[in-house]
Computed example of a mutant assay.
Amino acid sequence: LEQAFYRSIRLFEAVFGEEDEILLVTDVHSIKKDIFLQKRPLNVYLKYIKNKEKLYQLSHQLLSSIFDEADDQSVTHRFALSCKKPEIKYVQLLKAICYEDFAHPSSILKNNPQSGYDIYFVNLSKEIIFHLYDDRGCDVLASNKESIKFLYEEYNHWILDYDREEIDLLFK
């Protein structure tokens, strides 16, 4: 876990500058009749956004299942907030994401284990998406490969073996 914390924080800090426009997106995947979010609001924004006034800008969309169009019982609650890096307690948030598969107090959906979630940090300034999925890894995507080539060069030794061939082909 310590290695996951270290690597996710280093990558995040490499991708996001202090003045970059960030869209913090959280998708919560649940079934239609689950009223968990009505009873207890999502704590991602309440716990990890420094200025609570900013929360008035939080947007919410209710989407059909984003995994299976034929599934009419599942829904995705998409929350989004525009912010900058200094406004996010990103170190704590990244650690909470890493802890998700463990019984830890910082778990994001600890009181609603039947729902899944994904958190995306979208760098609107650089057109990069950072998605730490859990302690096992993270994806960094960009609108063009040149904007993340520096990550490939500096953190190449962190690339997972099962992704290496495909990523090497992209950058060589």
Rank of each mutant, 00 (worst) to 15 (best):
Y133I: 09
E146S: 13
W158Q: 04
Y162V: 07
E154A: 13
D163H: 05
I148P: 13
G137D: 11
E153P: 01
E146N: 12
R136H: 15
D139T: 08
K145M: 08
L151I: 02
V140S: 02
L141V: 11
F150Q: 01
E166Q: 12
E153D: 13
S147T: 12
L160I: 13
A142P: 09
G137M: 09
N144D: 15
R164K: 11
F150R: 07
F150Y: 12
H157G: 03
H157E: 15
E154G: 02
Y155M: 15
W158F: 08
K149P: 01
R164N: 01
V140P: 04
D163P: 00
I159F: 07
W158M: 03
D161Q: 12
N156G: 14
G137T: 07
V140F: 01
V140A: 02
W158C: 00
A142K: 08
N156F: 06
A142D: 08
C138W: 09
E166C: 08
A142M: 05
E146K: 09
K145W: 03
W158A: 01
K145F: 10
N144Q: 14
D139P: 08
E146H: 04
E153G: 01
D135T: 05
N144M: 01
E166N: 12
H157L: 11
R136W: 13
I167A: 03
Y152E: 04
F150N: 06
L141W: 08
S143W: 02
R136Y: 15
N144L: 02
D161E: 14
K149H: 11
E165L: 06
V140K: 00
K145V: 07
R136V: 07
A142Y: 01
D161A: 14
G137Q: 10
L151Q: 00
Y152G: 03
S147C: 05
D163M: 04
K149G: 05
E154K: 10
W158V: 00
L151R: 00
E166T: 08
E146G: 08
I159L: 13
L151E: 02
D163E: 11
A142L: 03
W158R: 02
A142F: 10
D163W: 05
K145Q: 10
E146F: 05
Y152R: 02
I148Y: 01
C138R: 05
V140M: 03
L160M: 13
I159V: 13
N156E: 14
Y162L: 12
I148T: 04
S147G: 01
D139C: 14
S143M: 05
N144K: 12
L160Y: 04
R164C: 04
I167L: 09
N156A: 08
V140H: 00
S147P: 07
D139Q: 11
A142E: 06
D163Y: 11
K145G: 04
R164I: 06
E146A: 09
D135V: 03
D134Q: 06
Y152A: 02
D163N: 10
S143T: 09
V140Q: 00
F150T: 03
Y133F: 15
E165Y: 00
G137R: 08
L160V: 11
E154V: 01
